[in-house]
Design a protein around this nucleic acid. Sequence first.
DNA 1: CGTATTACCGGACCGTGGTCCGTTTGCAAG
DNA 2: CTTGCAAACGGACCACGGTCCGGTAATACG
Lengths: 200, 200
Amino acid sequence: MPTELPVRDSEPHERADAARNRRRIVAAAERLFAREGVANVSMDAIAAEAGVGKGTLFRRFGDRASLARTLISEREAGFQDDLIRGAPPLGPGAPPVERLVAFGTGLIRFKAEHSDLFCAAENGQDGVRLRGSPYLSYRQHVRMLIEEADPGADADYLADVLLAALSAELISYLSGTAAMPLARVERGFEDLVRRLLSAP
Amino acid sequence: MPTELPVRDSEPHERADAARNRRRIVAAAERLFAREGVANVSMDAIAAEAGVGKGTLFRRFGDRASLARTLISEREAGFQDDLIRGAPPLGPGAPPVERLVAFGTGLIRFKAEHSDLFCAAENGQDGVRLRGSPYLSYRQHVRMLIEEADPGADADYLADVLLAALSAELISYLSGTAAMPLARVERGFEDLVRRLLSAP
DNA sequence: CGTATTACCGGACCGTGGTCCGTTTGCAAG
DNA sequence: CTTGCAAACGGACCACGGTCCGGTAATACG
């Protein structure tokens, strides 16, 4: 019986060079995306800029969408946290409908600001994006609020519908091609939520 | 002044070999998609099966998504027509909310049946799918019905939201990964429409 | 039928996302 | 320090979607 506990291998000891390379890759991607625009940067270019082999890049981040998601999640960690622990109306304490509206408004602004990155992140074959962990936690959050606001509704279905209304593709289309001001998109979503979940 | 009118060049005389090749390509694609599954068929394979060069394939149908849309539109022409000229509740005559419900139900069934084809068709970078002509005509239809049902609503915004709820990606995710029976998706959409557009 | 025009053909070619595998290297134990 | 080995590296490699352009043949016209 060992006297010291085995290393907690929930994070099984990432090697130093691996960590350094990951930081390099993230930094390189951020730099290139900012300079050239997300759509104009190839994975090859990122690897080169990071001074790293292509294989390394793809091992760390399984594919392009995944890399984009990593960059996003750095910026969105605060938002996620506000949903659970922040002040109302985003965080707990406000009525569910108000929380949903605040959630939608926040997400719309956030996605509009980084729309190209989000489009890269949400663009995978099939419904890859619908299975990623950030989506799942949003889904869980929305589902809970819907159920709280109206126990009679099909919260599972409606949660996915509301999130579809907040997809990067739609937001960037509306505020881009369709030339709809962001404020109108936000009002539209608010109206949508209130119509859906007003008390009978 | 010419005695005979110039040829109507709205359809500027497609050459015989071109027409034959187009038919061959469509037939080959249909065959391969049915046999191997849409996702497992490359454009090369389609060209080969059709006995045609790759260039021909891509000139006729600009890209993969476009080819998929062509195959779909053959099957959906009838549906499109029913919307405008068919019997109620799909066609004119029924109250707008009923028409929307019928439209959604029909589209859900149709997309679920050909989900892989639709996923190929709706999967382009950016919001390509939101600018294609089939989408636009659906959008116009939905927009009109919303306005008729509730002139106070932001019909432009809501039309896109309802169509997002009917996207192939969402439908195929719900009825596939999420294991939600199609009937529940249909009921969910119906409920959604009624909540949104019930008279105050 | 002969000829000119030109749409159309086909496959070589390119860049990209993603994989594979022989080689290197950080790390820990002796 | 030496040694052993798993982990990580990197770039050659592959398949695919999409483009290009020199050659071909269908059509129109005389």
